[in-house]
Nucleic acid binder design. Structure first.
Lengths: 223, 223
DNA sequence: ATAACCCGGAGCAATTCGCTCCGCAAACGC
DNA sequence: GCGTTTGCGGAGCGAATTGCTCCGGGTTAT
């Protein structure tokens, strides 16, 4: 086990890697289970003991708080990156796919457990503004269907960010299933994006998924 | 409280209504929280005591089992109804919207807790076949984009069936929020359907949603 | 009024939770 | 080489939550 952790030397490097793994694990588990996610599940998914978790974060709430700050940052960053694209559609699509891929999903589930600082509220406002600007640009360019609003897009992102349990199960030593889930999700996102867009459909990414993503215990006849 | 329950007379009528409310509540709560949903949450959402729940179902597992059977029936029924439409697109769209609206979402979360009878596996096979037929018809008619498979659609349905917590919160005496959530969801479904379809976008249903669906505690500046 | 019926929720044992604490292994100074 | 330091993992604690039982109270029919 420690073999994997020694690619960079020193205890500090391992600590940093653990910290990152913890945040990512927390994001995934919360996206799948909501705010009820247990610390032991998060630690297990990160491949870390709960002791290590509590050395870095004073409490579960502190972890969630930190996660909320980070997610808010990522969200704002994705929106601003979108505005940097010259092409209005590319900008909007970049924002939507980014927001879905790192879990904007965590923000709403844990919104009740963290306390929102002024700085966080400010970032939230700024990203809302940026998204509205992205939408306006796309509307003006005629590439986004005119009856879709920024709120529609926000809700779509929230809906598509929630992980089905499949991904969680797939993680435990089943990298193949995890990859299949990523592929399937990217196709769904592409479908939704084409639903937002005016004009002809755009080719779907990846390979068509098979039935393996559905719970195996749910007996599906071989075909 | 009992005033509301006496629209139809007699204890049997009330019992039947309770039973229906229980199943619907279980469906909603599971769609929002997964298989970890607690019986007390289900009973509370149905507006009945836990005693009444346990008079009708021997255990939590029994309730889940019954719910799985019913959902499987509804799912198969929706697919077969879709095949009865003459228009291939209408048939597919009917299936997708139906499957999303009553929670096909419950099936996968609870697949591990129920035991699957031969009859259930058979129904599952039949609905898979029916969906594939729906997809084939739509492909042949050229109304469904050719790179979308039946599995893509199944995964899309699963993703869109999962309820955000908003709806759960909205339920508790906030009919307005619940209606807003339904409206917002129907728009998202319509967007996804347009992403599946070839040709020009189809008008979105309902009214553009506002930000009220996001957790209120997540401070959004009034605009 | 009496009997039959069903509903709701307090309360029980068991499980799960967030969290603390301590024994252990790896890196460092000598 | 050996002690020191540092961070790790997980057994185990009390508290909270869980699935479930059981009984007092209210409603309907007679």
């Amino acid at each position: 086990m420690s073999e994997d952790r020694r690619r960079k030397r020193g205890p500090q490097a391992r600590a940093a890697r653990n910290d990152h793994a913890l945040l990512e694990a927390a994001r995934d588990v919360i996206a799948a289970e909501g705010a009820h996610a247990s610390v032991s599940a998060i630690a297990a998914r990160a491949g870390v003991g709960i002791g290590s978790l509590y050395r870095r974060y004073a409490s579960k709430d502190a972890l969630f708080q930190h996660l909320a700050v980070i997610s808010l940052d990522q969200h704002l960053h994705a929106a601003e990156e979108g505005l940097e694209h010259d092409d209005p559609w590319d900008g909007l699509a970049h924002y939507v796919t980014s927001a879905i891929s790192f879990g904007t999903a965590v923000l709403n589930p844990i919104a009740g457990t963290v306390d929102i600082t002024d700085e966080m509220a400010d970032k939230n406002t700024r990203s809302d503004r940026a998204v509205e600007e992205l939408v306006r640009r796309a509307h003006d360019a005629g590439v986004l269907r005119p009856d879709v609003t920024a709120v529609d897009i926000a809700l779509l992102i929230e809906q598509l960010s929630r992980s089905p349990l499949t991904e969680q199960l797939g993680y435990q030593g089943r990298a193949d299933l995890n990859a299949a889930a990523c592929n399937a999700r990217s196709r769904i996102v592409a479908i939704a994006l084409d639903g937002l867009r005016t004009g002809a459909p755009h080719a779907l990414p990846g390979q068509p998924p098979g039935y393996e993503l559905f719970t195996e215990r749910w007996a599906r006849p071989e075909r």
